[in-house]
Computed example of a mutant assay.
Amino acid sequence: MDRLVDLHMHSTASDGTLTPGEVVAMAREEGLAAIALTDHDTTAGLPEAIAAGRRLGVEVVPGIEISAKRERGTLHIVGLFIDPEDGRLEERCQALQAERGRRNERIVSRLCELGMPVTLDEVRGKSGGGVIGRPHFAAVMVEKGYVATREEAFDRWLAKGQPAYFPKALLDPAESIAMIHDAGGVAVCAHPSQLRCAGEHELEGAIAELRHHGLDAIETQWSTATAEEMALTERVAGRQGLLRSGGSDFHGGNKPDIRMGVARGQIRVTADVLEALRRAARPRART
């Protein structure tokens, strides 16, 4: 039987609901051979996850997920096999988190103006000490009775184009990829359907541009993908000479329909995918 892995997931270090150690423990229960912890703009959860992995016999690939600029849709770039102690990466993450802090203050002010008073302390309490994001605001809004569900919080107030939405600071794609490479990692285009490309030709153009900036791989299996989308992305990866990656984008209770390792039942990422990515990372690893 093929060993299965999951190379995209989140913990309480960003917008997941399980601690890094709990993520690893669940991975063991699910029978996964390896996982990548890829929290948003932070490596804070990696030491706990790596220690838990050693204790429980689950390989933990150090990772990160970075949001990059794109005119249409959303571009997230996952870094795998990064050095979690890279000083330059940490400095850049701290700068991004400072920008997130300013954005969070604006969201608090706007919700208060809209008659839904919340405090940063309340939101921080939902983050478990990790990076604060919109899911934590949504959780407070549900708790205080302003909305019935987290989905309603986003649909009516927090999503792009809604009254309490503010864009977060984003890096250029080239800068995001270089940031990952400088930390010894492999740069992966995450959940490519979120690029909102109109068809295969447009997707290939977008991926080719990222390839020009040094993109190493693309997720060909992800949580919302249809069989047709995965096949399309496989074709694009082959023509562009990119490695494959994949993962569930597991968030725990913040995405309750997504199961670690299988997403909605349609993904199956095998260990050979991990080994190809590992080989690609080695030439850039520091000595």
Results as ranks from 00 to 15, higher is better:
residue 106 R to Y: 00
residue 95 A to Y: 04
residue 80 L to R: 06
residue 167 P to I: 00
residue 69 K to W: 01
residue 163 P to L: 08
residue 279 R to S: 11
residue 158 L to S: 08
residue 27 A to P: 03
residue 29 E to I: 04
residue 75 L to I: 00
residue 152 E to C: 02
residue 96 L to K: 13
residue 137 F to H: 13
residue 186 V to L: 11
residue 1 M to N: 13
residue 195 L to H: 09
residue 130 G to I: 12
residue 183 A to T: 09
residue 156 R to D: 05
residue 53 G to S: 07
residue 92 R to D: 09
residue 57 G to V: 04
residue 64 I to R: 05
residue 205 G to K: 15
residue 52 A to Y: 00
residue 16 G to E: 09
residue 200 E to C: 05
residue 85 E to Q: 13
residue 267 I to L: 13
residue 37 L to A: 07
residue 161 G to M: 08
residue 181 H to Q: 01
residue 175 E to L: 02
residue 175 E to K: 02
residue 258 I to S: 02
residue 262 V to N: 14
residue 164 A to L: 06
residue 238 G to D: 07
residue 243 L to S: 09
residue 104 N to Y: 02
residue 30 E to S: 10
residue 131 V to M: 13
residue 221 Q to L: 15
residue 49 A to C: 08
residue 155 D to N: 10
residue 281 A to I: 01
residue 254 N to I: 15
residue 82 I to L: 11
residue 149 T to K: 08
residue 201 H to N: 09
residue 70 R to H: 14
residue 84 P to F: 10
residue 129 G to P: 08
residue 92 R to V: 12
residue 133 G to V: 01
residue 266 Q to C: 11
residue 126 K to I: 04
residue 166 F to P: 00
residue 60 V to G: 03
residue 142 V to C: 14
residue 130 G to F: 07
residue 121 D to W: 07
residue 241 G to D: 11
residue 278 R to W: 08
residue 109 S to H: 12
residue 275 E to G: 05
residue 133 G to E: 01
residue 36 A to P: 05
residue 272 D to K: 10
residue 221 Q to P: 08
residue 282 R to L: 12
residue 285 A to Y: 04
residue 149 T to M: 11
residue 66 I to N: 00
residue 15 D to I: 10
residue 174 A to S: 09
residue 105 E to A: 13
residue 240 Q to L: 15
residue 199 G to H: 04
residue 26 M to K: 07
residue 254 N to G: 15
residue 229 E to I: 05
residue 260 M to T: 02
residue 250 F to G: 11
residue 144 K to I: 01
residue 104 N to H: 12
residue 53 G to E: 06
residue 276 A to S: 11
residue 142 V to L: 14
residue 212 H to M: 07
residue 267 I to W: 01
residue 40 H to V: 05
residue 99 E to K: 15
residue 272 D to N: 14
residue 180 I to S: 02
residue 112 C to M: 08
residue 221 Q to N: 12
residue 33 A to T: 10
residue 160 K to R: 15
residue 196 R to E: 05
residue 168 K to E: 06
residue 69 K to M: 03
residue 74 T to R: 07
residue 37 L to G: 07
residue 38 T to I: 07
residue 25 A to H: 12
residue 71 E to G: 14
residue 86 D to G: 04
residue 187 A to R: 03
residue 96 L to M: 15
residue 232 L to G: 02
residue 25 A to C: 07
residue 269 V to G: 10
residue 83 D to V: 09
residue 56 L to A: 11
residue 9 M to E: 00
residue 121 D to V: 08
residue 69 K to N: 00
residue 119 T to D: 08
residue 84 P to R: 12
residue 186 V to A: 06
residue 90 E to N: 11
residue 277 L to T: 06
residue 189 C to L: 15
residue 157 W to E: 05
residue 8 H to C: 10
